[in-house]
Amino acid sequence: MNWASTSDFFAMGGYGFYVWGSFLVTAACIAGEVVFLRARRSAALRTVRAEKVRHETAA
């Protein structure tokens, strides 16, 4: 085991800012992309439903 305590782990041997700055921004980007993808899918489905209604009323 590399770490003596939790605070030791978060300190990262004095490099906490750089290490956590890298990992947290990566996690935030991925989480953000997942949220954007969900939103894009719902918006696309709304468009499909609107088109469907338009087609059905036109027919």
Partner: peptide
């Protein structure tokens, strides 16, 4: 996974006027 999720959204966006998207259960 991300590319597949996005390509599905792009398909819906671009083909919203086509019959197959209207027949999807989620539509």
């Amino acid at each position: 996974a991300a590319a597949l999720a996005r390509v599905r959204a792009i398909m819906l966006e671009r083909e919203a006027h086509m019959q197959w998207t209207h027949e999807l259960p989620e539509a």
